[in-house]
């Protein structure tokens, strides 16, 4: 895979654009959780498929990097394969499915089960970066709310959940406070993955292409999930173990196996599951 596409710059984006995105990333790292606006470019894939993540990856990837792309935990879905091949073709970089071997992991909806290590970079694809958007449609107002740390109304949503369901029913894209300061959407990862963001040794970058925002959680940064004192944050749990590898500690997907009501629970992280079974 050393032969790259002719006529394209390394990693598709031109150098000027990469420089602009890197500046945004540097600012984002300097202010953990703060959404930095950037000049998002048209990418050869539709909005919602990871245009933000792919631009972040393109501007940080080097020839020596090893790229892993996951989509809902799996390495072998259309989106993951397409993005991996895109960078193999335009940057000629090595790709992998093994979490431990990767230096850059672009992800949609999951954080790998294998613990991340220092030096790795997580790139999250973000559909809607603004955690306050559901309660305040005006961008000028949400920016003021961030500036003045006016986050109290976020709990209204949790209050509603508890009033109606008896527990906090938000299960993915669960809002967090980064470094005791900024309220942040962790992208649509299950809340199961929220604790992995806290004090992670890896650098975590978040890119929202359509909304033109980049934000970051630097290594070893405090990430706290919002909750109530009498309804503390809790992650999902399952009564069953993974059908394939027997894991009781990983995030499980329920898979229908036939039309007779047959079903099984398997790890959502395919690489983790495969490593345990082989």
């Amino acid at each position: 895979m050393t032969q790259t596409l002719a006529g394209y710059n390394f990693a598709y984006l031109d150098e000027q654009t990469k420089r602009m995105i890197r500046r945004a990333i540097l600012k984002a790292v300097a202010i953990p959780g703060y959404q930095v606006p950037f000049g998002s470019r048209e990418m050869p894939l539709p909005y919602g498929w990871g245009t933000g993540g792919i631009q972040v990856t393109a501007s940080i990837i080097g020839r020596a990097d090893v790229l892993k792309v996951i989509d809902q935990g799996a390495d072998d879905t259309t989106n993951a394969i397409s993005i991996r091949r895109f960078f193999a073709k335009t940057a000629g970089v090595a790709t992998t499915e093994h979490t431990a071997d990767a230096t850059i992991i672009q992800t949609r909806h999951r954080v790998p089960e294998t613990p991340l290590r220092a030096g790795q970079i997580m790139v999250y694809q973000v559909p809607i970066p603004e955690p306050l958007r559901w309660l305040e449609p005006r961008e000028t107002e949400t920016r003021t709310m961030h500036a003045l740390t006016e986050y109290g109304a976020m709990h209204v949503r949790f209050y509603e959940d508890i009033a109606h369901y008896g527990r906090i029913a938000t299960t993915y894209d669960y809002p967090v406070i980064v470094n005791d300061r900024y309220l942040m959407r962790p992208s649509p990862i299950p809340k199961f993955d929220n604790p992995k963001l806290d004090m992670s040794p890896a650098l975590q970058l978040f890119g929202a292409g359509r909304e033109k925002r980049i934000y970051a959680v630097p290594p070893f940064t405090k990430v706290k999930s919002l909750d109530f004192q009498d309804h503390p944050f809790a992650i999902e749990s399952w009564d069953e173990a993974c059908h394939l590898c027997g894991s009781t500690t990983s995030f499980l997907d329920e898979v229908l196996t036939d039309d007779q009501g047959g079903r099984m629970f398997v790890c959502s992280d395919t690489d983790y599951c495969r490593t345990r079974t082989s």
Partner: peptide
């Protein structure tokens, strides 16, 4: 806020000034 319950409407200001105990807010 018409899209959330009456209780949440009354509780919002409490949460805005830092109340974080569901039982007390309710």
């Amino acid at each position: 806020r018409l899209t959330v319950s009456a209780g949440a409407n009354v509780g919002e200001r409490l949460m805005a000034v830092g109340a974080r105990h569901y039982g007390e807010i309710r």
